[in-house]
Write a protein that binds this DNA or RNA. Structure first.
Length: 509
RNA sequence: GCGGCCGUAGUCUAGCUUGGAUAGGAUAUUGGCUUCCCAAGCCAGAGACCCGGGUUCAAAUCCCGGCGGCCGCACCA
């Protein structure tokens, strides 16, 4: 099955998970922006809730919220400005494009970078040195084109020039608020901030639905730690997981594509994962994606990035990737060791001392390790991995606790007080905290299929027998099997079924 | 942004080559009949030619531009 991608996009659009923004009303609406419909939004909230319960709360993360708009100075300090305004030039013959500075540096064998030069100066070098296209050898070039990969804006009614930008990552908010957060929370190192937030990147060509968007959402953890003592706390925390196997695609294995399973102990002791802190978080996130988000281990790997692929701020960098037949390996989490790159950048540009005191009263500029989840990509992969069809029906075999509707209640027929009874059960389920849904339109079979298609794990049906003995049937989405239970036991049983990976038969009274 | 292919109801699609009268079908959806445990049937309703310009008596159809989609290249901090 190689067309699941398209089926999921179609289903998501048709049933209200997500769809392209503004397209129906304004035909030329730009790509890369998506609406989350009612079902998609619920599911997204559930993924966030799962992350909060499994990571944020357990790991002592202080979650904060920082603005989407930040002064442009911030991005000067973070290095984004320099790296976001690429100057590209295109070969007129073969249409290959190159970064102007790289082209000149590589053609002339220069070691010095040419960042300070103006467009005119760069063009003069290209003409004078007769620089050829590395691909086809032509010397005919277009003008230099600038690619602004950040959304800049003018804040203030009188501002004409851009003085701020939409953030391309939530990290900078955490970095510039780190010291304040540390003080108000009476922090000690390692000190952890977390953010759920929208970020904005002016991608050249957004593609593949939720995979590459211009506005998307990150779940970020920012761990600030003393680089002289990266094992503090984490040596003990890692202890129970030393035999846990982490799946790596190391840079030396990239050619053959072989994934190496390394125990946390091996990874740490060989120096590959640098310190206990990083090793622990690599373990934690692999476990989270496997055990909580239910992505099979064989579809998960950490891909080690090499020079040139790594972000400008990264000392070490692994992408947690997930495999699907349609999209291949896709990055879901950016795991970067950013050192003190960001903090020291802000110290330099702002002139402020951003160091904090440790327990012994020493001033420290902490290092930063950051696992950053691309939320939209995670949701999309959950849908792709859940998609099932067997010729008869289509269903989403989602982890039960991620389903946007948890339990549906139906009257078997629209008569004999069945609708009233089913509605009453529906209301009780809502009071019990379930996301419930009531439907009486169409035949019972059609209603089951509608729920299957959006991944609703349980369908409860009120039938003739209900009216006699106050029992209902509970139907399992995946097997279509039904058991009969007392209405009074329904909430408890449904809760158990949604939380635990048990069979419907185990709920029989 | 470049090259190739493409754009018709919510979804899938016929029609386009060779311009012509009410844009056809399937499915989903809404109301009614049927009364029922896995997308049954019948009746009725609503719903579309991506946007703009041009050629023409006449454009879904031909031409140009824009926007968007898919694949490849590039980009992906």
């Amino acid at each position: 099955m190689r067309d699941i991608y398209e089926k999921v996009v179609e289903l998501a659009n048709r049933r209200g998970f997500f769809w392209p923004s503004a397209r129906d009303v304004y035909a030329g609406a730009p790509a890369g922006f998506f609406v989350y419909g009612p079902l998609g939004l619920r599911m997204k909230d559930k993924i966030i809730a799962l992350w909060r319960s499994k990571i944020v709360l357990l790991e002592g993360v202080h979650e904060i919220e920082t603005p989407n708009i930040l002064p442009i100075k911030v991005f000067e300090a973070s290095g984004h400005l320099k790296h976001f305004f690429d100057k590209l030039i295109e070969c007129k013959r073969c249409h290959s494009r190159f970064r102007v500075d790289k082209l000149i540096e590589e053609s002339l064998g220069l070691k010095e970078h040419l960042e300070g030069l103006s467009d005119e100066e760069l063009m003069r070098i290209i003409k004078e040195k007769n620089i050829r296209c590395p691909k086809c050898g032509s010397t005919k070039w277009t003008e230099i084109k600038k690619f602004n990969l950040m959304f800049t804006i003018a804040v203030g009614a009188e501002a004409n020039e851009p003085n701020a930008a939409l953030r391309p990552e939530t990290t900078q908010g955490s970095v510039i608020e780190f010291r304040k957060s540390y003080i108000v929370m009476r922090g000690r190192l390692p000190f952890i901030l977390g953010q759920v937030g929208k970020v904005f990147r002016n991608e050249i060509s957004p593609r593949r639905a939720l995979i590459r968007m211009r506005e998307f959402q990150q779940l970020e953890i920012h761990i600030f730690f003393n680089s002289d003592d990266p094992d503090r706390i984490y040596k003990e925390k890692l202890e129970p997981y030393l035999d846990y196997k982490i799946r790596f695609l190391r840079k030396e294995d990239r050619e053959i594509g072989e994934i190496v399973e390394m125990t946390a102990r091996e990874a740490l002791e060989s120096g590959y994962t640098i310190n206990s802190l990083i090793t622990y978080w690599l373990v934690l996130y692999q476990k989270f994606f496997n055990e909580s988000l239910k992505i099979p281990l064989e579809r998960i790997r950490y891909r080690e990035l090499i020079e040139g692929e790594k972000a400008h701020y990264a000392l070490a960098h692994w992408d947690l990737e997930a495999y699907t037949e349609d999209l291949g390996w896709t990055e879901l989490v950016n795991n970067t060791y950013r050192t003190d790159y960001d903090l020291s950048g802000h110290v330099k540009v702002s002139g402020n001392d951003l160091r904090v005191s440790d327990a012994e009263g020493r001033k420290i500029l902490p290092h930063l390790y950051e696992p950053s989840i691309g939320l939209d990509r995670v949701l999309f992969h959950e849908l792709m991995l859940a998609y099932r069809e067997d010729g008869e029906r289509t269903w989403l075999k989602l982890p039960r606790y991620l389903a946007p509707i948890e339990i549906a209640t139906f009257p078997l027929m629209k008569k004999d007080s069945m609708p009233e009874k089913a509605r009453q059960i529906y209301r009780e389920l809502i009071k019990e905290g379930f996301i419930a849904f009531y439907d009486e339109s169409g035949t019972i079979g059609r209603r089951y299929r509608r729920m299957d298609e959006i991944g609703t794990p349980i369908c409860v049906t009120v039938d003739h027998q209900t009216m006699e003995d106050d029992t209902v049937t509970m139907r399992d989405r995946d097997t279509m099997k039904q058991v009969r239970v007392k209405i009074t036991n329904l909430p408890e049983k449904a809760r158990k079924f949604l939380r635990e990976n048990i069979a419907i038969e185990d709920l029989q009274d």
